[in-house]
Simulated assay, not measured.
Amino acid sequence: MLTYLFMGIALLAIGFAVHVLKWNILIAYYNTKPKEKKNNKNTESYRKILGYYGYITGGIFFLLAFLEFQGISVPPTPVTAVFIVWTMIVMYYAQKDDEDEK
């Protein structure tokens, strides 16, 4: 339960930091781009995608922590697998959005 709770807090905080506070330093793909492309209008799109990703995923982890608190056992292996696949899908679409703009 504590792991799910910690992950929920961390992901919500990251989502808030990227989306609202505009901490671009937390966007790994953004930091590897050349300087002339960093000023692109697409930065707002990255922040929105990754902010919503943090909110949704953090909320799911809070839900899992609540289920564990209620006594419903949630095995961590499928949760980890879904989390990895969900992250890969979001990153694919974030980069695809960048490629479409070229």
Score class of each variant (00 low, 15 high):
1 M>S: 13
3 T>Y: 13
3 T>M: 09
3 T>R: 02
7 M>E: 05
13 A>N: 00
13 A>C: 09
15 G>P: 05
15 G>Q: 07
19 H>K: 14
21 L>C: 08
22 K>Q: 11
23 W>N: 15
23 W>F: 12
24 N>M: 01
26 L>G: 13
26 L>H: 14
26 L>A: 13
27 I>F: 12
27 I>T: 05
28 A>E: 09
29 Y>I: 10
30 Y>S: 07
31 N>T: 03
35 K>G: 05
36 E>G: 00
36 E>F: 15
36 E>K: 12
39 N>K: 04
43 T>P: 00
44 E>F: 07
44 E>M: 12
44 E>N: 11
45 S>T: 02
46 Y>F: 15
47 R>S: 14
50 L>T: 07
52 Y>L: 15
53 Y>N: 08
57 T>L: 14
58 G>W: 11
59 G>Q: 06
59 G>C: 12
62 F>E: 13
63 L>V: 09
64 L>E: 06
64 L>G: 10
65 A>M: 13
66 F>H: 06
67 L>W: 03
67 L>G: 06
68 E>K: 13
69 F>C: 06
73 S>K: 03
73 S>T: 12
80 T>G: 03
80 T>A: 12
81 A>S: 06
81 A>V: 06
83 F>D: 02
84 I>F: 02
84 I>T: 00
85 V>P: 07
86 W>I: 00
87 T>Q: 02
88 M>P: 05
89 I>L: 05
89 I>T: 05
93 Y>S: 06
94 A>P: 03
94 A>T: 03
97 D>C: 03
98 D>V: 03
99 E>K: 02
101 E>I: 07
101 E>G: 08
102 K>C: 04
